[in-house]
C-alpha cells in the first residue's frame, strides 16, 4: 500500500433536524487512491471501534450517477474539483496535513436529517408537480417513432444529465433551486413528448419551487460552476422564457 496521508477533518455533527449541530475534529490516515467517501468509511470504522456514533452521510451508487452523496467540502459542494460528485473525489486531491471542513448542503428547504445527511424531498415534490410527460399505458411504443433532430436530442440530453443532487442549491447564496428546475423544464420543453404540457408544467414546477421556500435567482452563476454534471446557466434562461410565455398566455 502506498504511503497514506494524514488529514484533519472538521465534520458537522447534528443529532437530528431540531437539535443544534457543531463541528467535531477527527484525524484520519487515508490512502491517496481512496475516494472521499471511502475515507469517511475509514473514519466511521475508527469511530465504531472507539464505541462512538459514526458520521451519517448519504451515498448510493458511488460512481457519480445517483446524486445522493452530498457534502460541502471546504466551502464547496462536492469538493474542490469541477464536474464531479463527492464520491468521485479522491484523497490525492488533498495534501498531507490538510485541514478539511465538511458540512451538509445547507438551505432551509434541505433540513438536516442527521450529520451530513439532508432531506431533499422538496426536489421530489417539484418533479411531481410537473417534471413528467403523460403517455397512455399499453404496448411500449417503438423507439424513434417520433423523429427528433440530433441537435435537439443532444441539448435535451445535456439538461437531462442533472442527477438532482442539490449542489446548485447548496452553492447559491440565495439557496435557489433554479438550476435544478431549469434543467428539467429545458429537457422537457425541447422534446416533442413534452410539448403537450409545456406551459402548465413550467408554471406548476415554479409554483412548487417557490412554495418549498427556495430563494430567488440573482444570476451569480455559482450553481452552474459547482454542478457536478455541468448543467449550464442557460437552462435558467430557458425556464425564465418558458415561464414568461406561459404567464403571458394566462397559465
Amino acid at each position: 500500500m502506498e504511503k497514506g496521508i494524514n488529514v484533519t477533518l472538521k465534520v458537522w455533527r447534528q443529532k437530528n433536524e431540531t437539535s443544534a449541530g457543531s463541528f467535531e475534529t477527527y484525524k484520519v490516515q487515508a490512502n491517496p487512491d481512496m475516494s472521499f467517501l471511502e475515507m469517511f468509511d475509514v473514519l466511521n470504522e475508527q469511530l465504531i471501534t472507539e464505541g462512538k456514533d459514526p458520521v451519517a452521510f448519504d451515498h448510493d451508487c458511488r460512481e457519480g450517477i445517483c446524486g445522493m452523496c452530498s457534502m460541502v467540502i471546504n466551502g464547496r459542494p462536492h469538493g474542490p474539483k469541477g464536474g464531479i460528485t463527492t464520491c468521485q473525489l479522491h484523497m490525492r486531491s488533498f495534501k498531507d496535513g490538510d485541514i478539511i471542513v465538511v458540512e451538509p448542503f445547507r438551505a432551509n428547504s434541505f433540513g438536516v436529517i442527521k450529520d451530513l445527511s439532508v432531506d431533499r424531498t422538496a426536489f421530489d415534490r417539484i418533479i411531481a408537480a410537473g417534471g413528467f410527460v403523460s403517455v397512455n399505458t399499453g404496448n411500449a411504443v417503438d423507439a424513434n417513432n417520433i423523429l427528433i433532430p440530433k441537435e435537439i436530442a443532444d441539448k435535451a440530453f445535456e439538461a437531462a444529465t442533472c442527477i438532482g443532487c442539490g449542489a446548485c442549491v447548496s452553492a447559491c447564496k440565495n439557496a435557489s433551486a433554479m438550476l435544478f428546475v431549469g434543467a428539467k423544464v429545458t429537457q422537457l420543453a425541447l422534446l416533442p413528448q413534452g410539448k403537450a404540457e409545456r406551459q402548465s408544467r413550467v408554471v406548476a414546477m415554479v409554483n412548487q419551487m417557490d412554495a418549498e421556500g427556495f430563494g430567488a435567482c440573482t444570476n451569480t452563476g455559482a450553481c452552474a460552476a459547482e454542478c457536478p454534471k455541468e448543467i449550464p446557466l442557460s437552462v435558467i434562461a430557458t425556464m425564465n422564457r418558458e415561464y414568461l410565455a406561459a404567464k403571458l398566455n394566462g397559465k
Binding site: E103, R106, N108, G221, A225
Partner: peptide
Amino acid sequence: LWNDNAKKRKEKYGKTAGNANSTWYSR
C-alpha cells in the same frame, strides 16, 4: 429580494468559498 433571499439559509456555512464559483460583485 435581498432581505428575503438572505433568510433562505438560516444555518450558515462554517467555511465559505464563494470566490471559487462567482464574482464578489454578483453576490
